[in-house]
Design a protein around this nucleic acid. Structure first.
Lengths: 210, 210
DNA sequence: AGAAAATTGTTGCTTTTGCAACAGAAATAC
DNA sequence: GTATTTCTGTTGCAAAAGCAACAATTTTCT
């Protein structure tokens, strides 16, 4: 979910001028934000990796989304919050820009360029989120563990334009992302290797078909 | 995913003036649009009901989204289209407003009020879509048929502010919406009735717990 | 460098889900 | 208003997925 303009060009600009943005740094494993209070946060991940995680009543953990540089997140995307706990957890050191959503619409005192461009591009930014979520839905709607794995591998493969790629998280987390049991996933992964459909060493996957 | 301003107030306005919108009517079972060509359509369902449907390679049908009055849809939300067929099918007579997405940003010749308000509200409109999709993801991420059913019933229940509500589609379609086997769903539904958790007559469901 | 914690890999067993097939009810079409 | 199609409801059996438990490996912490 890359934002379509390059934030780096404006970093200095907003750091000096924008009186609406908050810049924060989080260490690995810190909770960046929770989606329970209604602060209408809109966040941009400047660097690092983070997961949006849900813990449900049965004790299951689901990785709802995985974020890397320039992805956007925040409770503004969860207007109707459920009773489950939603957390954004830093998986590495993370730099985050935090806006209150309504502030994006209003011009900031200094009328800074970053803020202006952000508000101009807001629809496209949110639209890219929609595209991302639709991909997520397609994955979760798949009926078998095999289809989920191959579906996800295909996404990573086309994203990298190559049949070889690294998984962005551990196998334990992958299972929580695909909403399946880890040991069942490991078994399916073994079958996929045995049948010569994928190759795997460490967290590097290679697709062997076609 | 109701749009936050009332379109009806502007119907006459745009019908006479907006040179960017197309208004079309579809009969039940007609295909309103497909998501394969890249026309960047942005559609508003004025009246009726429609489903976004995917047919995958295994012959499974998934109802990706269900639309009713004032919901928005269109291929602009599927920038990265997969190889699967995506169709929007009218489940009843449907009135649809169709924009080319880029036209929404540009002022129309007549600078009509409807068009103006639409472009002003676009971020919130798309944001409501995000919220809707997140709900969908939460549902599909549930690990069992029972949790999917109860999760969906809870959504309908809170949407109607009552423990009794009608399902917006047939049981066959419900299974395709939850991405589960129909007969397995019927069995689980039977258990839920036997255990006194839900009541069901026709397509009307009543939640009995709490 | 060594201890502790987390992740990977595996397996036997149980439970859940899917599949196939069919009968009856309801809706739709002619 | 009758025939045809779709939908509902059910079941036995097969396949897939989940659960629990544990050893081996890797990573992290101090």
């Amino acid at each position: 979910m890359n934002i379509s303009f390059n934030i780096d060009n404006f970093i200095n600009d907003f750091e000096n001028n924008c009186n609406k943005v908050q810049k924060k740094t989080f260490a690995k494993n810190e909770v960046i934000t929770t989606y329970i209070e209604k602060r209408n946060q809109f966040c941009i991940l400047k660097s690092g990796n983070a997961d949006l995680v849900r813990y449900d009543l049965n004790g299951n953990r689901t990785i709802v989304e995985h974020f890397s540089a320039n992805d956007i997140f925040g409770e503004v995307f969860y207007t109707i919050t459920t009773n489950n706990e939603l957390l954004v957890e830093a998986k590495s050191k993370c730099d985050v820009l935090i806006y209150i959503y309504d502030d994006i619409h209003n011009k900031c005192k200094n009328n800074c360029k970053f803020h202006h461009i952000l508000s101009e591009n807001l629809p496209e930014l949110i639209l890219s989120k929609v595209t991302q979520l639709n991909m997520r839905i397609e994955l979760l709607a798949k009926r078998s563990i095999r289809d989920k794995l191959l579906g996800y591998f295909n996404i990573l493969s086309s994203r990298n334009l190559t049949k070889s790629f690294s998984l962005p998280f551990s196998l334990t987390d992958l299972a929580d992302y695909l909403s399946i049991d880890r040991s069942a996933m490991m078994r399916e992964l073994k079958y996929l290797k045995e049948e010569g459909i994928v190759k795997k060493s460490g967290n590097k996957i290679t697709l062997l078909y076609k």
